[in-house]
Nucleic acid binder design. Structure first.
Lengths: 252, 252
DNA sequence: TAGTGGTCTAGACCACGAC
DNA sequence: TCGTGGTCTAGACCACTAA
């Protein structure tokens, strides 16, 4: 990474910079290694710090770098593959579920959720769960369950907490699951999700929305927020071998 | 959107700004409507243009806005749902495939692709396809097919072009498809993909990687690049119940 | 306390699209 | 040609982490 000059090219500086840095990451750095700080890097390439940051931001978006305030910029490990929608015909909380219940309250959900659950202004069971891989938090979930889906629940004691979450999920298993519908889209982390995922608010996340269908209606709705920088979501037939694909450097 | 002041709060200005703008979009703007330009907006909120842009960038990332140089910033329509991995047990190019062949060449693929296909330094059939919804381009694909997977192809005339692409895909159907493996991750658009998707290079994309497995090996590898701003990827088993997704915006 | 990345400013010029 | 968003600069200060 000894290069100092940037030729005058029609392409943006930060783009060129990103390419140069990307190649340097491949050839001169190892996973976990810490990079020079932004001010030094900017000076070395003869650009303003903001321009250097634009390149770093893209590399972080692609999962190549990890930046932490007060610490520095490090080379990120390859993204981890996490299976979603694998338990294609099981309710959340069924045996083998990788999610860990955290809390459960009774709340009036956002309008879009209420519309899907057809619950109007009624409060619904709102279960918070988290998911970790290799000890690292990778996803936070909000699971909305219509009160009518778990009618036997009123007898249960705990008004909230993980115990209640487990109780609600246990009741859910009694229903017959007809099918589920999944969707993935790009989003940015809300403040609470960001905290749980150990990221700053606004960090890019992959939002997986799952609709659990029973008796022709949406009995439960899951909104799971995965760290986009560290995760590769896998779905469908679990074949066997795992490949890592780099989303940017696949050019010739 | 007449507000002019921003209180002194511990949260970043751009974050607050984003919230204010988001609410204004819901209540005071309609899809396709054009916003005031960045300089005016920044002045109206009493912030520097760069700060205003930080807020706009996030809203664009979330699919709420669309910005085009030389034109302006408009309110984006809700994301369109596009099905991926739906033809769970069919080769690309099979009947009903939504992809449109564009070109086909014989090239040495990137190292990661070569590793998956186990082709070493050998060139592979590289099919370029595109996908549109409602007349808009939503995805660009590079489909790599090991030469050994379509051995009967040498007799075919066209050395490249859409005709050859169709020929290669036709040959592919002769193999028995054992299964496929899907993954989705966040990436940024390469220059060529960006052009086809009508975006700037570096724009956020959802990269869907599909491995087609035959005879215990990876016979073909698809790398599909979807516009992250306009697409919501749907996958999995609809359970026979086809539910029309409500156009209502997801809660945040 | 020192050093890091995160936020913010007030400018400037450029590339592109529409007129 | 004009207005738009895109890029870039050279600073400043803040929030956080670790020593």
């Amino acid at each position: 990474m000894g290069t100092t000059q940037l030729e005058t090219v029609p392409e943006p500086k930060y783009w060129h910079l990103k390419t140069v840095l990307s190649e340097a990451l491949d050839s001169e750095f190892t996973v976990g290694e810490i990079l020079p700080n932004e001010r030094d890097l900017a000076a070395r390439f003869g650009v303003a710090r903001a321009t250097l940051r634009q390149a770093l931001e893209q590399l972080e978006l692609e999962g190549r770098l990890q930046r932490r305030r007060g610490v520095g910029t490090t080379v990120a490990p390859p993204r981890v593959g996490v299976a979603v929608g694998a338990e294609q015909h099981a309710w959340p909380g069924a045996a083998g579920d990788v999610w860990q219940p955290v809390d459960c309250t009774l709340e009036v959900p956002p309008a879009a959720v209420a519309a899907a659950l057809e619950t109007g202004e009624q409060p619904v069971h709102t279960v918070r769960r988290s998911r970790t891989t290799h000890g690292q938090p990778v996803a936070a979930e909000l699971l909305y369950i219509a009160a009518s889906s778990v009618p036997e629940l009123s007898a249960i004691d705990a008004p909230s907490g993980a115990a209640r979450a487990r109780a609600v999920l246990r009741e859910l298993q009694r229903l017959e699951l007809e099918g589920q519908e999944n969707a993935v889209e790009l989003g940015s982390a809300r403040a609470d999700d960001a905290k749980e995922l150990d990221r700053l608010p606004g960090a890019p996340v992959l939002v997986v929305t799952t609709r659990y269908i029973s008796d022709g209606h949406t009995a439960a709705l899951s909104v799971a927020t995965y760290r986009a920088d560290t995760c590769r979501l896998t779905f469908g037939d679990p074949g066997g071998v795992e490949i890592h694909h780099d989303p940017e450097r696949r050019a010739s």
